[in-house]
Design a protein around this nucleic acid. Sequence first.
DNA 1: CATGAAATTGGGTAAAT
DNA 2: ATTTACCCAATTTCATG
Lengths: 157, 157
Amino acid sequence: MDLDTTDRRLLGVLVEDATLSYAELGERVALSAPAAHERVKRLRRSGVIRRTAALLDPKAVRKPLLAFVHMDTKGWGKTPQLMMISEYPEVEEIHSVAGDTSVLLKVRTEDTRALESLLSHLYEIPGVVTTRTYVVLSTYLERPVQPGITREWPVAR
Amino acid sequence: MDLDTTDRRLLGVLVEDATLSYAELGERVALSAPAAHERVKRLRRSGVIRRTAALLDPKAVRKPLLAFVHMDTKGWGKTPQLMMISEYPEVEEIHSVAGDTSVLLKVRTEDTRALESLLSHLYEIPGVVTTRTYVVLSTYLERPVQPGITREWPVAR
DNA sequence: CATGAAATTGGGTAAAT
DNA sequence: ATTTACCCAATTTCATG
């Protein structure tokens, strides 16, 4: 499961566009179609590529409102009540975090009313003490996991 | 750009697995292969499907450490300095938010040292007053935008 | 449903271990 | 000597009019 330069270049292309033919894919990394295919198969088998998915426009599926919710909970761990949150298609991420809050959610709803409704449901979960919600005003960048390794750091001035 | 039930079912399948043949895809939503193809083409053209991408295992690309960073800034808006943050492949999301912080980042690094280094670079950006970092201890759910609309709300008890 | 393109398979070669 | 990665050519499957 060690990735060489060619693997990383393949991943870099596939993260951007996974619809290319193996011929084109190979061309971009200087490989024949079967060789590219072989590598991609290996990357899939080994789990480096988890899956290939269609990425949807949130507005088009009527979820224009993005928010991050910090939840303070009394207990800890993967309680069944907490896991039930996954049932809401509005909830995209659930993380337990270190810091002044215990659980962090990424949620996407149709409007503020739906967000309010979701929050009220979260409050009803036993053990949930407080929630703080950060409504996203605008998104400047949103992309999936990048294969890139930073070698030259950008200089901010 | 109005989605009917079949469109949503197609999207539901494609969000999970965009490698299926149109024959299989059609089978799952009770459509012929060309019909399924036609719909998917329309969904792509209209932008409902932004793109199809390979989703990578963060650990496999040596970014096992996930964190959310809240940045308080003096100014507002899409300053060039802020946008330079996109150059770091470690940064996956940049949002401006409402609440007790102004910018929210999702970042993924190899280790705490790399996170520290990234944070020190963020501090150097003019206008950045404070950062608060929430290190993710464990991720219970992480998925892309779902096409689903909640009709029956799960009951938490 | 037909045509062309693409994915996939097998055989054979060269380099690295 | 065995493994690994590759290319080429042939076949099957698929996209697409």
